[in-house]
Design a protein around this nucleic acid. Sequence first.
DNA 1: GTATATGCAAAACTTTTGCATCCTT
DNA 2: AAGGATGCAAAAGTTTTGCATATAC
Lengths: 143, 143
Amino acid sequence: MTTSADLKTIGLKATLPRLRILELFEKSEVRHLSAEDVYKKLVEEGNDSGLATVYRVLTQFEQAGLLTRHHFEAGKAVYELNQGEHHDHLVCLQCGHVEEFYDADIEKRQEAIARDRGFRIRDHSLHLYADCARNNCPHKGKA
Amino acid sequence: MTTSADLKTIGLKATLPRLRILELFEKSEVRHLSAEDVYKKLVEEGNDSGLATVYRVLTQFEQAGLLTRHHFEAGKAVYELNQGEHHDHLVCLQCGHVEEFYDADIEKRQEAIARDRGFRIRDHSLHLYADCARNNCPHKGKA
DNA sequence: GTATATGCAAAACTTTTGCATCCTT
DNA sequence: AAGGATGCAAAAGTTTTGCATATAC
């Protein structure tokens, strides 16, 4: 749980929109949310909120390291709570479900590849796009 | 080199815009081009071209397997010629230069990870974002 | 009280679509 | 000749920005 103090620590005033957006990510079952997703949820909850503020807050949170931004294959960005542990993404093309994974071997190879070429990795993204199951997508039919 | 015949093979008429765009990718030093990049180059060359056509053609070429689309971290898509050999990308955050690489170990691990979870990989993207060298970016200073 | 943040509306960008005209086959 | 392709303009979708008002400290 993130508190007002945490926001101040990163140099941001603990305003209502910021607290609400953070809480939303912390309580959401769906980890990856777009600006539009966040905006809609805020509106559903009542209390007015502006889409522009959502974009501004998401950007600030990303710069502060609270959220991580991804682009996947769609034309818009999605954000997820940054909980320290790095992971990559396995995205089902059929139902859109996202699973996360971490593989130490892959991480090591990436480091080695960059080092061999004289690069220092700052960030990376690995997305596997796949079909999760035949007709009955376990995440679609939730069976 | 791609010819009119190749376009017909994939069910597309060999029109001037399509031939010009394909040639552009084949002759370009920069492998990754956005729709806007392509459009500008066509305009520079003379002969009128519409941005809408560029988008349509790029999409068709991608569906036909001639081009591959990537999203990197910017808000727009870039395309590159699909020359058969799969590869991943190492992008320099300082100078924007893109190097390509292929690592069999990583490919194998990806397959294994997806298989373990019951997924079948259709596509994937691995992007390493890094700094290529200290001040004198080899690709910036071309030294 | 002051500086910062918000909300609204307008703008900037990327991409898509409708439609009359043009070009390839 | 016929159907698909193009170009223009308008629209749709995402993200940014200007500015007056409201809020946190």
